[in-house]
Design a protein around this nucleic acid. Structure first.
Lengths: 122, 122
DNA sequence: TTCATAATTCGACATATTTCGAATAATAGA
DNA sequence: TCTATTATTCGAAATATGTCGAATTATGAA
């Protein structure tokens, strides 16, 4: 994993490291049309105020958190009239899911000899 | 997603939000036996010092970061003689990968009416 | 016992994050 | 234009995090 990839990914995880932001992100994940794969082109959108509903945070805090999610590349935002709509690109979910799929992270011999010899045969 | 789950997950993401910690975690992911699914029972272990190799952080910082990863439930640690070995439980990878699989996050009607009516039909 | 190596704990400091309220901007409608 | 609604920006305060060096612990070997 290059430094660039590491920083990009860690920025995403940082955005998700706050419980409020994770909840916001998860709402966006959950609101896709039931019974279909989330997104494709049917990504549903939620306006800012509705996203924060029930979270008990000030509007300014909500705005800040959504900006962080957006800066990390996790969500999209677009003003439509009085409202600002948020949505989630399915490719982002795919990228993150793939990262934790161990198969995609196998390398051949990068880390030979990482254990001292006396500990390798038991 | 319950509050408990949210906090648990966000703690994991917080642990991965630091580039150094993400690099450490990724090394543990990458060092599995080539050609096999990571883990099952062949999880390979790496001792603390070797994990930090090339990362240019002080031993105390390395120790601190590994403790954070452990506290978040992301890695396992066990002393064997002079060394402390670290490894990764495959189930953790599975859990995280599954979280981003949008299918597993579909709910039926939790978020009806999140967009104001005038914006729902375009 | 004494020494060297591996790793952790502790205390300190600089920096970053979370959160809020007040002020501001953007928009739709009367 | 004036007003109400939606959302953002700004500044400040409290708290958390990342990092290091020094001291300490744990262990194996001479």
């Amino acid at each position: 994993m290059s430094n660039y990839e590491t920083n990009n990914l860690s920025a995403m995880f940082k955005a998700l490291s706050n419980p409020h932001r994770l909840a916001l992100f998860h709402r966006l994940m959950s609101c896709c049309a039931p019974g279909t794969r989330c997104g494709l082109e049917e990504t549903s959108r939620v306006c800012v105020g509705a996203l924060g509903d029930g979270l008990e945070i000030a509007p300014s805090t909500l705005s800040h958190h959504l900006k962080e999610l957006h800066r990390a590349g996790l969500i999209q935002m677009e003003r439509r009239g009085k409202f600002v709509e948020c949505w989630l690109e399915p490719s982002v979910l795919a990228e993150l899911s793939a990262f934790f799929k161990s198969d995609s992270n196998l390398r051949s011999n990068d880390h030979e000899q990482l254990l001292p010899t006396q500990n390798r045969q038991d």
